[in-house]
């Protein structure tokens, strides 16, 4: 990869090998710009948090990583998004294979109206694993890793919609894990949960960090400070500052960042 002048990654991309990266990424919804020349490197097996006031483009950026913006009409993109150094924006990209490798967990938990088992097995079925004997161990392993197994093992074949909000969100994480992705994108995964469920998910994220690369969008600065290794602060579609979490929260370099983390706006 040979980034041109002016597109040096902001902050220390040196923490680990970058698995995901953007280069001068700008995005428009119709006429309105949501991202402006964002360049950042997401290191492998780290937790990268994206913070910033509402509407600053965090979710939009997250959706660029697995091309979920394709589902929205009238989106225009310039710049590039790289996965293992390869551009993923090309027309010849197999988007569905990409999404298998880059999973996503949404702000509102969205289990399918199916059984718990079928929710977790869904991605595997889509990607060609049909045999029950193969699916069963995958489902169990995924639920265990999502710290949900003990709570649901006796009712795997009941509707997933009967679970509590926190359980549903962990189910969505299990569902994402089941297809063995490399990266998991989490878009405010705890914003609809109570503190206890939030704590469980944060704990879970720290465990998942051993195996996966996590990118988490959060509204909650304490959360970012607690769980992440790196934090990027966004403001009005721009990446204002990107630094190791401790650094960014203790000694922010940019006055806007400081204003935000000290609670003067946002």
């Amino acid at each position: 990869m040979a980034p041109g002048p002016g597109s040096q990654p902001t902050g220390p991309g040196q923490v680990g090998r970058p698995i995901l990266a953007t280069r001068d990424l700008s995005l428009w919804y119709g006429g309105s710009q949501a991202l402006s020349e964002v360049t950042l490197d997401v290191p492998e097996r780290q937790i990268t948090a994206l913070i910033g006031p509402s509407g600053c483009g965090k979710s939009t950026l997250l959706r660029c990583f697995n091309r979920m913006n394709d589902l929205i009409d009238g989106v225009r993109i310039t710049g590039d998004v790289l996965f293992h150094g390869q551009s993923i924006l090309g027309h010849d990209m197999d988007v569905n294979a990409l999404r298998k490798r880059i999973g996503m967990v949404f702000q509102r938990s969205n289990p399918f109206p199916k059984s718990i088992f079928e929710n977790v097995a869904y991605g595997c079925r889509i990607h060609g694993i049909r045999k029950r004997s193969e699916l069963e161990p995958i489902v169990e392993r995924s639920l265990r890793r999502a710290a949900l197994w003990d709570e649901v093992k006796d009712r795997l074949h009941e509707s997933a919609l009967g679970l509590s909000g926190g359980q549903q969100q962990r189910l969505c994480i299990a569902r994402a894990i089941a297809v063995e992705p490399e990266v998991i994108l989490l878009d405010e995964p705890c914003s609809a949960l109570d503190p206890v469920s939030t704590a469980r998910i944060e704990e879970l994220m720290r465990e998942l960090r051993e195996t996966y690369t996590l990118v988490i969008v959060t509204h909650n600065m304490q959360q970012a400070a607690r769980v992440s290794d790196l934090t990027g602060f966004f403001y009005l579609g721009r990446l204002v500052e990107f630094a190791p979490t401790g650094e960014l929260f203790v000694s922010p370099r940019d006055p806007q960042t400081e204003a935000y983390i000290t609670g003067r706006f946002g």
Binding site: R99, G103, N110, P111, G123, I126, R175
Partner: peptide, 10 residues
């Protein structure tokens, strides 16, 4: 729910 399915590569 649709987005969840598409995000899993369906």
């Amino acid at each position: 729910a649709r987005q969840g399915s598409r995000a899993l590569g369906a």
